[in-house]
Nucleic acid binder design. Sequence first.
DNA 1: CGAATCACCTGATCGC
DNA 2: TGCGATCAGGTGATTC
Length: 268
Amino acid sequence: MPELPEVETVRAGLERLLAGSVIRRARARRADLRTGIPDLRRLDGRRVAGVRRRAKYLLIDTDGPTILNHLGMTGRWHEPAGGSPGLHDHVILELADGRSLAFNDARRFGVFEFCRADGGHDALDRLGPEPLSAAFAGGVLRAAAARHRRAPIKAVIMDQAVVVGVGNIYAAESLFRAGISPALAAGRVRGERLDRLAAEIRAVLAEAIAKGGSTIDDYRQVNGLSGLFQNSFAVYGRDGQPCSACGTAIRVRAIGGRSSFWCPRCQR
DNA sequence: CGAATCACCTGATCGC
DNA sequence: TGCGATCAGGTGATTC
């Protein structure tokens, strides 16, 4: 579900709601999600310093532990109606001012753990550069394509060890903008085209953040609103519809086990 | 080693 | 209307 733009939008919303607030009582309503949930009593009485993002992970800093949270496919943060938890509200943060926040995750592919304040955690150790940082320089995709030359280019840009934050939607959209077929072996994409692809990844992610992410089904901002970028999709979910650039029908096929949408004329 | 497949879990949707 | 099959935005373990 949530890729970098959605996680960044949730980060901003959580920051607005939580920064400076004191957690009166934090509790998990089940023992685990994708991984075990630690004893959240360590958060009781702690003040939230801020909310950061690394890749698709949220890091919620307090004057005690730092929370490491991944939204998985269906994770959402929201303020429960009437303050009482609903179906799939797995973690409840009751704040000293009377508000409460819930982490809801129907499929339980999410993560709710602690990590070191410096970000030390197994899940964070092998992540590639942030796509919107200077570390995502020209050579990153060239090196990755050389290393994974037989893999489809779409699988390479979705590999979180290569560059973080790109999931199935933004992989499809950035490949369309770069004019590259998602199934093309990475080793057969010329260096200049990889540089163009890196630029399009940055552009599409930045545009999507500006629109509050993409809402297909589950994803919501913390304030409950949908994102808007789904209205800007060129190919994702548009199989059979005419390409906005050339009119050719958009196609869909599984690549690397994921549905992949592309224009067979614009993308080679 | 790299690349492909499977497994985790619930819910929405589709075809019959 | 009912029901089983299929699929969904992610990630990590396993298999080839």
